[in-house]
Design a binder for these strands. Structure first.
Length: 115
RNA sequence: GUAGUUAGCCAGAUGAUCGCAGUAUAGUUGUUGUGACUAUAAUGAGGAAAGUCCGAGCCUCGUAGAACAGGGUGCCAGUUAACUGCUGGUGAAGGUGACUUUAAGGAAAGUGCAACAGAAAAUAUACCGCCCACAUUUUUGUGAGUAAGGUUGAAAUGGAGGUGUAAGAGACCCCCGCAUACUUGGUAACAAGUGUGGCAUUGUAAACCCCACCUGAGGCAAGGUUAAAAAAGACAAAUAUGUUGUUCGCAUCGUCUUUUAAAAACACCGCUUGAUUGCAAUGGAGACAUUGUAACUAGAUAGAUGAUCAUCUAAUACAGAACUCGGCUUAUAGACUAACUACACUA
RNA sequence: GCGGGAGUGGCUCAGUGGUAGAGCGUUGCCUUGCCAAGGCAAAUGUCGCGAGUUCGAAUCUCGUCUUCCGCU
């Protein structure tokens, strides 16, 4: 799981990012990000009621968190991110979601290759 | 063997690696604030956590008082903290049966409604009829009697048979039903029996209503702690304010309203030891109660149970705690246990 | 988490227990050289779903599904 220092916690943080950040969409994921002066990455996840019932939503959130943790070392720092799930994500398994997240980050130049 | 009825139980397991939550212990660091980090330990979603349909705890409302209104419940007895719950019984309905279902008080307190059809729909009424008399005339009319039969309808003024009669009729008789009184049994609902009456008094209360009993309102986003300000306006001794609607009663003297600022955010308390859970014994027909013994078993706040791999397997369904508990209702794959019933076959 | 509404033709809505309606739209015909407007007809409903009460339910009762609104 994500450590508490890497989490977005307050409603006003979310609202700030939505207001000032850039939004990019690819397949079943939307990423919103904004540059900050702090080095630590902060991340939040948003899964709306359109995706499904509470069991389904929790499952999607868990998979998104787990994907983020596995990719965390390669994500550009000094930024805050919000990942929003879109309809269709509930039918994908963990590996497909991880692949989708990696692709969306690469496309927008937020992914650092291992070298 | 087939089909079924009732009751109960389970809701994947094991191992490996990585990771989250609060708790306890130890260490490091640090402050408005036991706050952050590290290590170790054990623990960490359900049978419905769901719907929010009932009931209760708990909290707040300075008032919790009364009457009416409004709302709820409705066979009897028991059970429970309480209940539209549960248990046992009575009546009624369904099923060959095991068994199941049941909003089941009152229609001689009053009001309303009963479309169409039908003679007639609650008021005793007569379309086709039956029978008698008279007239006309040879099938009609008038008058009197009658309601057995026919027709309509969801429902037709006790049922079927006999006596009786001009024809008929509870007019009378037997049996059944109904009403009522008494006796017996039962805590009671009610049941059985005996006598009397002689058919009035249709249905509908999940129509208004009557009767009996219950009912203050709002809800953890309740409410409290750290915790402390200023300005403007309204009202002035009965106005105003207050807790569903109305009236009365009651309480408050400085109260109320608006605006701005701060506190204040990684906040804290409420928050989980409780009508608790497991086991055993005793009492009871049962729901349940009592006693003993053991256990402590989520407490998050962008919101914790996951990811990957392996093995077993039928392993799949419905589904995620948000103050707590007791019920009800609804969703649900698959597996298992016990008792019983009907039918068929065999001995 | 707590509370309160709605569901009827394709759309917007009436309908207080007795044959399901209105407007707009749709289709056909008339009118016109053609179209619009106008006129005359017609079709279109498991009254969200499942039970119950009743002789009879869109309507009354219970359950359920969908959807909307308020409190933060």
């Amino acid at each position: 799981m994500i450590k508490s220092e890497n989490r977005l916690r307050k409603n006003k943080h979310f609202r700030y990012i939505y207001k000032h950040g850039e939004t990019k969409t690819y397949k079943v994921l939307t990423v919103t990000f904004v540059e900050t002066k702090f080095k630590t990455i902060k991340v939040g996840f948003s899964v709306s009621k359109k995706i499904g019932k509470s069991v389904v939503r929790n499952k999607v959130k868990r998979r998104l968190r787990e994907s983020f943790v596995s990719l965390q070392k390669n994500i550009k720092p000094n930024r805050n991110y919000i990942f929003t799930a879109k309809q269709g994500i509930e039918n994908l398994d963990f590996h497909e979601i991880r692949q989708n997240m990696m692709e969306i980050l690469k496309k927008n130049g937020l992914y650092i290759e291992n070298n």
